[in-house]
Design a protein around this nucleic acid. Structure first.
Lengths: 222, 222
DNA sequence: AATGGGTTGTAACGAATGTTACAAACGAAA
DNA sequence: TTTCGTTTGTAACATTCGTTACAACCCATT
């Protein structure tokens, strides 16, 4: 277990033995979840730090018409709800749902506060993690403000392409999963992909997408 | 100046004299801005903490079609960019524009880090501030995922009403300003207001809005 | 090879929103 | 009071997207 925790950004640079010392005294609890189990519910207060020990969960928001929007996926060794436990209104903004068999370590905020005060490295790590988190959320807002689906797709494809360093992208998600990430309807997504192909921006062969005109794509994504 | 800084949530519970000590040694710089002056530009790295000493600024995002989205307004004695200075990719997600004559204190991240290490109260304040910030951004995302303008308006009116404790709301913003906050077109906003009046949800007399059917409004806003 | 569940492609239609334009109403300053 | 810039109300039309439905396709299993 401590090897996994050691890989968590919060405990970067801390030795296994130090982690063992910090976690000593039964200050945590480990729960197991199966796929589709609900780990935490949108709107409920969040007083625990949750560290993924194995598996994957998904942060989901539901809007007024019942549409599902996937905010993010989190796998071991990362943590959930890091940024909320110290907020004055600390109710969770998302529901957390297990995608696979998962083990999650729960630690009460008080105990985590003790760790922060005991260990300066963890504290500085925490500052970085929570700042990155704000950046992530801001980027998400930026993404959601794209008005057209075409802009969202252009942004998504360019980021993917940059990340893997190739103009040929193999999609790992189904159209439905992409649609949930974008917060759009699946057929609308497919239609837009086709329009972009017709316009010569990309080439699509099922899951394989080739970027043909990056200049126009960049213009679409700002 | 120190009286203003003392009112900033980061320095809550710190005495004026202690603040004077912390800020001693020319570790900051004060700049003045006039309305429409640009304080910081979207996409540029952000290595300074900025504390408003007077005036008001606005955080704005621009999307691919040139639409302006107002993320927030910040006035003295609050701070700007608190949540980003420690992020690994610390480029600002918004542009900051002065709305009124403003004085802003700039402090390099290094110096602020020193303060965090010197003073535990400031550190704990910082954790709360940055957590609140994440909560704010998440709420913003939740708001942006409302698909219809009607839902956005319902959510906005209910929050306003709850805040002032009255069913009668006097709008402080122009329609254009509201449209920028919502990320919608101004005539679309006016049309939707009218539709909601036709449906008996609200009553509108120019800037005065009366909530008539809170149950249906709540259903719209989830 | 045949079957069946899931994924993708596509079309028709309606709903929501954006765009543009202009008139009416307001309010501050002359 | 008049004037002028700003704000609001409203309409017509275009665009984008959602909804629903169904066929084509893929692929793992039988």
């Amino acid at each position: 277990m401590y090897e996994i925790i050691q890989k968590n950004p919060l405990f970067r640079g801390i030795s296994s033995s130090d982690i063992e010392l910090l976690f000593n005294g039964g200050i945590y609890q480990i729960k197991k979840f199966q796929p589709k189990d609900i780990v935490a519910i949108q709107g409920e207060p969040c007083n625990h730090l949750m560290i993924m020990l194995s598996g994957t969960v998904q942060g989901q928001m539901v809007d007024s018409s019942g549409r599902l929007i996937v905010i993010e996926e989190i796998s071991a060794p990362f943590a959930i709800a890091v940024a909320f436990i110290y907020a004055e209104k600390n109710d969770l903004p998302v529901s957390v749902v297990a995608l696979r068999d998962s083990e999650i370590l729960f630690m009460r905020r008080d105990y985590f506060t003790d760790i922060l005060q005991q260990n300066k490295t963890v504290l500085l790590n925490y500052l970085t993690v929570i700042s990155n988190r704000s950046k992530f959320l801001s980027d998400k807002i930026h993404f959601l403000t794209f008005r057209t689906i075409k802009s969202k797709i252009a942004d998504f494809l360019l980021k993917q392409s940059k990340q893997i360093g190739s103009k040929v992208i193999f999609l790992e998600e189904t159209q439905q999963e992409l649609a949930d990430i974008y917060g759009v309807a699946r057929p609308s997504l497919a239609r837009t992909f086709k329009e972009m192909e017709d316009e010569g921006l990309i080439n699509i062969e099922r899951k394989k997408i080739t970027l043909l005109d990056e200049i126009k794509l960049k213009r679409l994504a700002l």
